[in-house]
Design a protein around this nucleic acid. Structure first.
Lengths: 201, 201
DNA sequence: CCGCCAATTGACCGGTCGGCCAGTTAATGG
DNA sequence: CCATTAACTGGCCGACCGGTCAATTGGCGG
């Protein structure tokens, strides 16, 4: 009994609430989750949620803010760590991104919810991320590795959207006849995508 | 005052309720829409909704059923109308599908909601549609128009998912730096996708 | 023209919603 | 050691939720 002598830890409480809210919001959607359900899941009183976050809407904003910040920091780190002028960079990046989404289904669902509510936030971080990705494509175009007659931002968008949608809509196309596994699809997608990106002969 | 002498028209009432429910469900999501809100929008009583549909959940099922049936019938007609052995078929199909989604944003949102609730329904109709699309790809592969080392179902999935996600996530990537218009993106996507599909030299 | 049935209404139900408030308790700084 | 502050609790609020029910109304077949 030498730890947790402290009976109050507002920071920890905040995080506990945030974690419980994230889990429920991402699974069921904001309007399908009650503050009492979050309170129960977090092991605190409903009033405490309002004390720390003010309102249900503010809690949802905090959940998004936290999750997106973490997402963008991880992605930015990945992008910056990647070697710049290697033509295999894009393949690696797509594979890494695809597997990241596979390992973080809650991120995929968070994206989907925010898209449906028309949330245009997280722009600054996002723009930096996409801008960096597009810049890498542009460098590869200048170096002659990729065709130059496509908008680099569109290239980034294509692979980001395909990867997201693959996991987002899995319950749907997962039952399509002839559909392969995650890795099978990724392989075929990379074939089409990367070879479509090659310079025209 | 020669029309609408009939004060009761159960069929019309049903359709009115269905239309109001579709509009609200698609915009805000099932759990964020109350039956009273639907009743008000449809100009009827809440009880009448239960009389015709039984429950809120059943109404949502009816909304999905109706919308999907219409969607699949239109798509199937499009696909069957297209000329079989023309290598330009895929380009036309993608463009048609892309513009269909652009003109029917409610379909895009309906897809997104059902994906989030993990609805694996509408399988039969969907499988027929995708099966037919994949069959067309396979024919083009056999004819030597397309490379044969990719799964035809994956090809269909790639273009369906990219088109869907473009409109689904527009509030998000619409603000990305350097992003072009709908038609600009479609053009670039088609370049990558179709030329990636060409047989290897 | 009447009787039946379905369409339609409004009042009402128990339950839950998000939020508030008064009061209690634990850490902290003087 | 006490005063102050913030963390935390339980109870409560009015509003609204999805759903039910008895009563009314209109169309329609006999």
């Amino acid at each position: 009994m030498n730890e947790a002598v402290q009976t109050r830890d507002p920071e920890l409480t905040r995080e506990t609430i945030l974690a419980a809210a994230t889990s429920l919001f991402v699974r069921d959607g904001v309007s399908a989750v009650s503050t009492s359900a979050i309170a129960k899941a977090a092991g605190v009183t409903k009033s405490l949620i309002h004390h720390h976050f003010g309102s249900k809407a503010a809690l949802w904003e905090a959940v998004k803010e936290t999750a997106f910040t973490q997402y963008f920091q991880e992605q930015m780190a990945m992008l910056e760590a990647a070697d710049t002028r290697d033509p295999a960079l894009l393949k690696d990046s797509v594979e890494t991104y695809f597997r990241f989404l596979k390992d973080h289904p809650e991120v995929v669902r968070l994206f989907a919810w925010t898209h449906l509510e028309g949330d245009a936030e997280c722009s600054e971080m996002d723009q930096a991320l996409v801008g960096l990705g597009a810049e890498r494509i542009r460098q590869a175009q200048d170096a002659g590795f990729f065709r130059a007659d496509v908008n680099p931002t569109h290239v980034v968008a294509t692979f980001v959207m395909t990867c997201s949608q693959w996991f987002e809509a899995k319950c749907h196309h997962g039952h399509w006849p002839g559909m392969g596994s995650d890795e099978d699809f990724l392989e075929d997608f990379l074939k089409l995508f990367l070879e479509g990106l090659l310079p025209r002969q």
